[in-house]
């Protein structure tokens, strides 16, 4: 039996957070690279000033076959009780007013996880996807990999890219991916790919982050894409959202 399906280039996006400029730049980049399929790993809204545009785009792409799972910010739109930090809370309340019933229904219907051949898509740590646990180290990565038989798990949530792998001798490796360098995902190991954030990077690099999976070469490429940070930040300020949400885009922290 073949582990891998037909040769295809999949573009994966996590934590877009209503940043239209960053999302557009990543989509353009992915199209130029020849992406054929799209996967969204949650947190389409919150923090940024364009939840309407971002959600409309995602919904349109899902209508054409893209896959999408639920993030904690998306969940908070319809479940007001979710605990969040104060800035996130302000942003969610503002976002709620920006979305129509159709968009809210789309978010309410998103699954927590999706299985696609030997790949698992989830927003946070996979053993308890609804607890929104950050994958910060090999400890959480190990818990996540033990909870699924998938060959590769993709998640986001922490806004810092990382690549974990589990050897057949049950040892975990952690790796900080280098932008643009393809990493072979050896079939003899199991992998957890933590994506950086499209709309609010926190690893000190302000460029938008997404990833490409080449299922033919069995390689993952973490990509960083420059975008119009000034415009995204200006729109956050104009919307009256907490200024820190605009400032942090410039430093990527």
């Amino acid at each position: 039996m073949r582990r891998w399906g037909k040769a295809v280039l999949i573009a994966l996006f996590a934590d877009i957070h209503a940043n239209r400029q960053a999302f557009e730049a990543c989509l353009d980049h992915a199209r130029v690279q020849g992406a054929q399929r799209y996967v969204f790993l949650g947190d389409y809204v919150g923090y940024g000033a364009d939840p309407d545009w971002v959600l409309t785009t995602v919904m349109d792409m899902v209508g054409k076959g893209a896959l999408a799972v639920l993030g904690n910010h998306d969940n908070a739109i319809n479940v007001p009780g979710e605990t969040m930090n104060s800035e996130a809370q302000v942003a969610i309340e503002w976002t709620r007013g920006q979305l129509g019933p159709e968009q809210r229904r789309f978010l309410a219907d998103l699954p927590l996880t999706l299985q696609d051949e030997s790949r698992l898509y989830v927003h946070a740590e996979a053993s308890k996807p609804k607890s929104w646990i950050y994958v910060k180290s090999t400890v959480e990565a190990s818990t996540s990999l033990s909870a699924t038989p998938a060959h590769i798990t993709f998640c986001g949530h922490i806004h810092t890219p990382a690549l974990y792998s589990l050897s057949i001798t049950a040892k975990m490796t952690a790796f900080t991916p280098v932008s643009g360098a393809a990493v072979p995902m050896l079939p003899g190991r199991r992998w957890l790919a933590v994506l950086g954030s499209v709309g609010q990077p926190r690893d000190g690099n302000p460029a938008a982050a997404y990833a490409l999976l080449d299922t033919d070469k069995k390689e993952i490429i973490y990509c960083r894409v420059p975008y119009d940070v000034d415009e995204a930040a200006a729109r956050i300020r104009k919307a009256g959202l907490p200024p820190w949400l605009a400032d942090r885009l410039h430093t990527g922290k």
């Binding site: 001798t169 975990m172 490796t173 952690a174 360098a181 990493v183």
Partner: peptide
């Protein structure tokens, strides 16, 4: 630019 499998193992 690749994970160092030997380092961790």
């Amino acid at each position: 630019q690749l994970p160092d499998l030997m380092q961790e193992e």
